[in-house]
Simulated scan of single mutants.
Amino acid sequence: MTEPLQERIAQAMAELQATQAAVARAEADLRQASTTVRSNDRVVEATIGGQGELTGLKFLDNKHQNLTGPQLAASIMEAVQQGRAQMARRVMDTFEPFTRPGPEDSMRRGVDLDWNRVFGSALSGGERAGSSRSSRNRLRDEIDEDTD
């Protein structure tokens, strides 16, 4: 009876080591990953790193000179939020195989992750659930309201 138990332990250890190696490779790939996104008005280009951090910001063709400060801020926020959402989806896709159980004869169980808790508003590009207006339009509405 101890032999089958020792075989199962050896199998579980081998699966654990393989999973740990795969996770380490995924983490290393994501440390090098980035995505670059342009705002819809094509004024700003933001580069986002694998952990959702802003790693680059460009103002394209000096178009920003024709914008007010709040308009430029809205373009920056839009590009950064879109980039963070793209990177969050990439991270989810990378780690999705680890959330599923292993094959039928496997000891590996899937990991249950609450991606909304991990990424927060980054998943929706910065919009709150149920919000139909983009953050850019909300900012414009606030700007319009503050002109009194």
Rank of each mutant, 00 (worst) to 15 (best):
A12K: 02
I76C: 03
P101W: 01
R90C: 03
V37W: 00
S39D: 10
M87I: 09
E15N: 15
E78V: 02
F59M: 11
F59Y: 11
R25F: 04
E127I: 06
R128L: 14
G125K: 02
F95V: 02
M1E: 12
F98Y: 12
R108A: 11
P97T: 00
R117S: 08
G120H: 06
E27Y: 07
D148Y: 09
I143S: 04
R136M: 04
A26S: 10
R136K: 15
A33Q: 10
T99S: 09
M107Y: 14
G120N: 04
T19D: 12
G56F: 10
Q20P: 12
P4Q: 10
S132K: 03
A122F: 03
R89N: 14
A28Q: 09
Q65P: 09
G83M: 06
A10C: 13
D41S: 05
S106T: 08
L72H: 04
F95R: 00
E96Y: 11
N62V: 12
A26C: 01
R138N: 01
N40E: 06
A26T: 08
T35C: 14
Q32N: 14
A129K: 12
L30F: 13
G52D: 11
R128I: 12
G110M: 04
A24C: 13
G52I: 10
P70Y: 07
M107T: 13
N66C: 08
R136E: 02
A28E: 09
E7N: 11
L16E: 08
N137M: 00
S131Y: 08
V43A: 03
V37N: 02
A18P: 07
R117L: 08
R25W: 06
R128E: 12
D41E: 01
D61G: 08
M1K: 07
R108M: 13
V23M: 10
T94M: 06
L113S: 02
R38M: 15
S75I: 01
N137F: 05
V80M: 01
R133I: 06
Q82D: 12
E45Y: 04
V23G: 05
Q71L: 00
A28D: 05
P4F: 14
M13Y: 06
V118T: 07
D146M: 03
A14N: 12
G130E: 00
E15L: 14
E145M: 08
A79P: 03
L139I: 04
T147K: 08
S132E: 11
F59W: 06
G83H: 05
G50T: 13
R89T: 08
A26D: 03
P4T: 13
V23L: 12
E104G: 03
R138Q: 03
R133A: 01
F95W: 00
I76R: 00
L123P: 15
T55N: 08
P101A: 05
E145F: 13
G49D: 13
R100A: 15
A28T: 00
H64I: 05
L60T: 09
I143N: 04
F119H: 00
A33K: 07
